[in-house]
């Protein structure tokens, strides 16, 4: 099997290139991920991403993919969170059987470098994911997965806010469970409801004065949100409910309209809400 895979990859016909350009406009209700008013504010931003993947069909039902991604984000009002992204990914997919109803198992690893206009947030983001997808009927498709995300940033001692804590607020680790159930309407248009449960570290921002220090693991002054804000690291359980509407516009062009509500619960009963709207245009080349 391995031999077939290696020799197969040498044949161009076994490989297939898939590249997708994504343009999206987004509106998030709580950009700082702040606990409460008056620190909460919303903003709109635009994302542009280009992903290119090379798929190698190593044997019937098995596929290896190697890909790269470039992206950029620009906010409408918020200064300091603009970012660019570059990354690589590797994934392997196995279909247990023949046809669209056979379950497909996926394992993937991605490594992205994200750089912000405020360097404190500059990070390496590593994501290891396992997922299975199964078409239940012609209309229903179920996808479930787990992932482990590690974000590593470089602390800046010049931004220490409180000597009891370090400034390494963007080095984070979390695990997540995701489930998505898609229902196909007409002509491949589909509605997807999604759920996620994430356990691990998150960052939140606030103006000084909020009694944060009891739940904080690290805290730093963060001009990315605003000159008078601090960002702190904390453990939280996050749940998200999402609703997406995927509309094919042409054979290789699609539009997704999406909404997600996120709720993070931390110690002391603290809750962080975020309502995110997205309109994303995707075109495959």
């Amino acid at each position: 099997m391995l031999g077939l895979g290696v020799t197969g990859m040498l044949s161009p016909a076994h490989a297939e290139t898939d590249s997708v350009l994504s343009l999206s406009v987004n509106s998030h209700s709580n950009i700082p991920n702040a606990l409460a008013e008056p620190n909460v504010f919303g903003d709109n931003f635009a994302d542009v991403n280009y992903r290119i993947n090379r798929y190698f069909v190593t044997s019937p039902g098995n596929r290896l993919s190697i890909g790269a991604e470039l992206g950029a984000r620009q906010y409408l009002r918020t200064q300091g969170l603009e970012s660019i992204l570059a990354g690589l990914n590797l994934a392997y997919s196995h279909r247990a059987g023949l046809g669209p109803y056979a379950p497909r198992f996926n394992v993937g690893l991605s490594l992205n470098r994200v750089e912000f206009s405020e360097s404190l947030r500059d990070s390496w983001v590593r994501l290891l994911s396992l997922s299975v997808s199964k078409r239940l009927t012609p209309e229903w498709l179920l996808n479930m997965g787990v992932n482990s995300r590690q974000r590593h940033a470089q602390p800046d001692d010049n931004l220490i806010f409180n000597p009891r804590f370090g400034s390494d607020v963007f080095t984070q680790h979390s695990q997540e469970f995701t489930a998505r159930l898609e229902y196909t309407l007409l002509n491949a248009s589909a509605v997807t409801i999604g759920y996620r449960y994430r356990q691990g570290e998150i960052d939140a921002s606030s103006r000084p004065g909020t009694p944060l220090l009891n739940i904080t693991k690290a805290i730093a002054r963060d001009a990315g949100i605003g000159k008078d804000y601090v960002t702190y690291l904390l453990n939280a359980d996050t749940q998200g409910l999402s609703l997406d509407w995927n509309i094919p516009l042409a054979r290789d062009t699609g539009l997704t309209l999406g909404f997600e509500r996120l709720l993070s619960r931390a110690n002391q009963g603290n809750k962080y809400f975020n309502n995110n709207l997205r309109a994303e245009f995707n075109v495959r080349f």
């Binding site: 997708v20 994504s22 999206s24 991403n49 992903r51 991604e69 992206g71 970012s83 992204l85 990354g87 669209p100 991605s110 992205n112 994200v114 990070s123 983001v125 078409r135 012609p138 209309e139 974000r151 196909t184 309407l185 007409l186 002509n187 491949a188 589909a190 997406d244 995927n246 094919p248 516009l249 042409a250 054979r251 290789d252 062009t253 699609g254 997704t256 999406g258 997205r278 994303e280 995707n282 075109v283 495959r284």
Partner: peptide
């Protein structure tokens, strides 16, 4: 009801 060919949302990357 056919299986979609058009690409879908990439989802949050970071």
């Amino acid at each position: 009801r056919r299986i979609r060919r058009a690409p879908t949302a990439s989802g949050p990357q970071y």
